[in-house]
């Protein structure tokens, strides 16, 4: 299993645990802006990140020279996904309690970063989805 896949999957596991903690907070009545963060930690931080890691590992080889496509794009995907998600996880609850321009623009930056992570993943994976 390549290093990037191991890091994707281990990070996904951390998000899974973190999301479940958020679930406890929600069940305890702490709700300020946490529900969307809880959902995205689970679906984006855990499920999607796990899939990204496994796709990078197991999909058909891109070529003999570059079996996993661009390693650099893979690392950029990892970095952008996690920076974007963490910024959101911090800024969204704060913004829901005390809206302010700085927090608002943090959410915009997070939105752009997360979209870029998806775009780079698709660009890097597209050529590996092919018939044998």
């Amino acid at each position: 299993m390549p290093l990037l896949t191991r890091i994707f999957i281990k990070t996904a596991m951390i998000y899974l645990a973190l999301a479940l903690v958020f679930g406890i907070l929600l069940a305890s009545g702490v709700t300020n802006g946490l529900f969307p963060v809880y959902i995205h930690l689970l679906v984006f931080g855990w499920l999607t990140q796990l899939i990204f890691g496994v796709v990078f590992w197991m999909f058909p080889k891109y070529s003999v020279e570059k079996p996993r496509g661009s390693e650099a794009l893979g690392w950029w995907t990892y970095a952008l996904l996690n920076i974007g998600l963490l910024v959101r996880a911090i800024a969204e609850p704060i913004q829901s309690m005390q809206p302010n321009p700085f927090g608002g623009w943090l959410l915009v930056i997070s939105a752009v970063i997360q979209f870029m992570a998806g775009l780079l993943f698709v660009v890097n994976s597209w050529g590996r989805v092919k018939e044998k």
Partner: peptide, 20 residues
């Protein structure tokens, strides 16, 4: 993969709307 891109784009627009 195409749905992933569109879904992420929609999500980004929604999150940005929450921000500004």
């Amino acid at each position: 993969l195409l749905y992933l891109l569109l879904g992420f784009l929609f999500g980004a627009l929604l999150l940005a709307q929450k921000g500004i």
